[in-house]
Structure formats: structure tokens, C-alpha cells
């Protein structure tokens, strides 16, 4: 089976297990079972009627902003486990919002590359909106608000806001300037994703920032056999995350999609679990 189709099937399966309760869209209800105490590895809003798990970024802010705790060991532990095991392979293979962005990017239009400075924006979003604001800005009860969800997250607007507002008239009557801001960010993100491959992942996603930092040590990794590599540059040309796999095997931007390994004419690139200890199984093209 073609590698890109295999990855797409895994992404669709991940989207499916993340959002199995499709019938909830009809009544605008949320799944309320015990599975929701577990975090999804990818970005998927827990206010989406179909969602089966908690969003890790939403959960992190919820516990960090609670009256009793200022650091969520539970969510940090889950993120650390996913990160050490998979790194940004979560983004490339398991993230529901990543799949949506890839589908949006298929809309015909001129395709652009993102300036490198924008890649650092997601770390600012992580520190300011996910960590600092929910802990530092609190109400009289000592509770903080999930600033990333509140002011930025387009996944929440798309997966939770739109379907819930369509099915609840009472909620529609409470729409204000904040919702207008979030819809503007959603529209901006959609336009960004049409023009730039995985615009949100590259520029804004705090979850991608966390997994990107763990890419350097993740068990699922990428290895280039220097003896086989002929520096033809085909891997760099095919990479839509704009990574040079030969120079930066542990790049925080690499989502381990494996397209570079398939494009290598010498079979010099290996992507998978414990890649550095394995030899590439592929023969030269």
C-alpha cells in the first residue's frame, strides 16, 4: 500500500476513535462517560459533541487554573509519555486537527512557505496562553481561565462552538465580541491552512510545541545513513514541513510523516521506532 494512503488511513482511524459519538451532533449534547478523564494525544476539543477524550491542552489549563492545583502532574505526565514515545509523530499520524488542516490544504490555491520567524510563535503561545495566564490571572476564588481556549483555539470554535451554537438557540443569544474574535481567528486559520501546509501546526499549536521539544529524544524517530546519503536534496524538496532531514534529523518541526524516506533514491532514511538503532530496510530506488 502507498505510504501516503497508509498514513491517511491511520489519521482517519485516529479521527474516528477521537470522535466516535457522531449522533451527539443532532442534539448538541456532549459524551459524558469516564473515557473523558483521559487525554487525547492530539488536539481535539472536548466540547465537540462527538469527542470521546479530553483535549490535553484544555485539560492542562483546567487543572493549572483550578483553585487547588497550580501544576497538573497528571496532564504533564500524559504529554511526557506521548512525547517520549512518539514525539511529533502524534501530529503527523494521530492529530484530528492535523488531518483537518491537511484536507483544507487540498483546496486549490497558490501555495506559500511560512517565514521561519512564525515557527517560534507557537512557543510564545504555549508559555503565555497555556502556562502563565491560567496560573497568574485568577478570579476572587483563585481560579484561572483557559486563555488559549478562550482567545485563540480555532479547533474549539470549529469542533465545539459551531455545532453547539447551531443546535442551541439559548447559546446563540449569548454570542458576543469574544465569539466574533474566535470566528475571525478560525477564518484566518482556515485561509492560512489553504495557503500554507499545516499553518496552525507550524505557527500556533502549543501541543506541537511540546511534542516538538520532545522530538529530540522520542523513541519514534528519524535516522539518516550518512554512508548511503548522496546529498541529492530530494528529501528536503519533498518535505512540506520545510525540514532538511539530513541536517536536522531531530528537528522540532518534523512530524515524522515519512515522505522523505519514501523519496530517498538511496534508501538512506529510516523513520520508525528506535530508528537510530536500525538500518534502513529499503533498497535504493
Amino acid at each position: 500500500m502507498k505510504h501516503s494512503i497508509k498514513r491517511k488511513l491511520v489519521q482517519v482511524a485516529a479521527f474516528g476513535y477521537s470522535n466516535p459519538y457522531l449522533m451527539n451532533f443532532k442534539g448538541g449534547k456532549l459524551y459524558q462517560g469516564k473515557w473523558k478523564q483521559f487525554c487525547n494525544p492530539g488536539l481535539n476539543c472536548y466540547s465537540c459533541p462527538a469527542a470521546a477524550f479530553a483535549c490535553p491542552i484544555g485539560a492542562l489549563q483546567a487543572v493549572n487554573g483550578s483553585a487547588n492545583f497550580k501544576l497538573s502532574f497528571y496532564v504533564v505526565g500524559i504529554l511526557l509519555a506521548f512525547g517520549v514515545l512518539l514525539g511529533r509523530a502524534v501530529c503527523g499520524w494521530l492529530c484530528p486537527f492535523g488531518l483537518l488542516q491537511e484536507l483544507i490544504h487540498k483546496i486549490p490555491s497558490p501555495k506559500l512557505k511560512l517565514k521561519k520567524a512564525f515557527l517560534y510563535l507557537k512557543y510564545v503561545v504555549l508559555v503565555v496562553f497555556v502556562i502563565v495566564l491560567p496560573i497568574a490571572v485568577t478570579d476572587y476564588m483563585g481560579m484561572g481561565k483557559p486563555a488559549f481556549c478562550q482567545y485563540i483555539c480555532p479547533a474549539g470554535t470549529l469542533e465545539g462552538g459551531v455545532p453547539l451554537l447551531l443546535s442551541h438557540q439559548a447559546l446563540r443569544q449569548t454570542i458576543g465580541s469574544l465569539f466574533t474574535l474566535k470566528v475571525a481567528i478560525l477564518i484566518g486559520t482556515v485561509i492560512g491552512c489553504v495557503l500554507v501546509y499545516r499553518f496552525f501546526c507550524k505557527a500556533l499549536c502549543p501541543l506541537g510545541a511540546i511534542y516538538g521539544l520532545l522530538n529530540k529524544i522520542s523513541i519514534y524517530g528519524l535516522k539518516v545513513d550518512e554512508h548511503k546519503c548522496i546529498n541529492c536534496g530530494k528529501c528536503r524538496q519533498i518535505c512540506r514541513m520545510e525540514v532538511d532531514p539530513v541536517r536536522a534529523t531531530d528537528s522540532a518541526e518534523c512530524i515524522r510523516c515519512g515522505e522523505c524516506a519514501k523519496a530517498c533514491p538511496e534508501g538512506a532514511i529510516c523513520v520508525g521506532f528506535a530508528a537510530e538503532g536500525r538500518k534502513s530496510e529499503r533498497q535504493p530506488l
Binding site: 456532549l30 459524551y31 459524558q32 462517560g33 469516564k34 473523558k36 478523564q37 487525554c39 476539543c45 472536548y46 466540547s47 469527542a51 477524550f53 479530553a54 483535549c55 484544555g58 485539560a59 483546567a62 487543572v63 483550578s66 487547588n68 492545583f69 497538573s72 502532574f73 497528571y74 496532564v75 504533564v76 505526565g77 481561565k145 483557559p146 481556549c149 478562550q150 483555539c153 474549539g156 470554535t157 465545539g160 462552538g161 453547539l164 451554537l165 447559546l171 449569548t174 454570542i175 458576543g176 469574544l178 465569539f179 474574535l181 474566535k182 470566528v183
Partner: peptide, 24 residues
């Protein structure tokens, strides 16, 4: 985290509509 009750906070947040998440 589980022992000190964080999973319960996550569950409580996730099973109710998060007004911040949906822009309200």
C-alpha cells in the same frame, strides 16, 4: 496526579460545555 484528584477535574471540565472553548 490521579491520587490527588486531577483526573476528576479533567473529567468534570470535559463532560460539561466549556464556554471559553466555544467562544462564549
Amino acid at each position: 496526579g490521579v491520587v490527588r484528584g486531577e483526573a476528576g477535574i479533567v473529567l468534570n471540565k470535559a463532560v460539561n460545555i466549556c464556554f471559553e472553548c466555544i467562544g462564549l
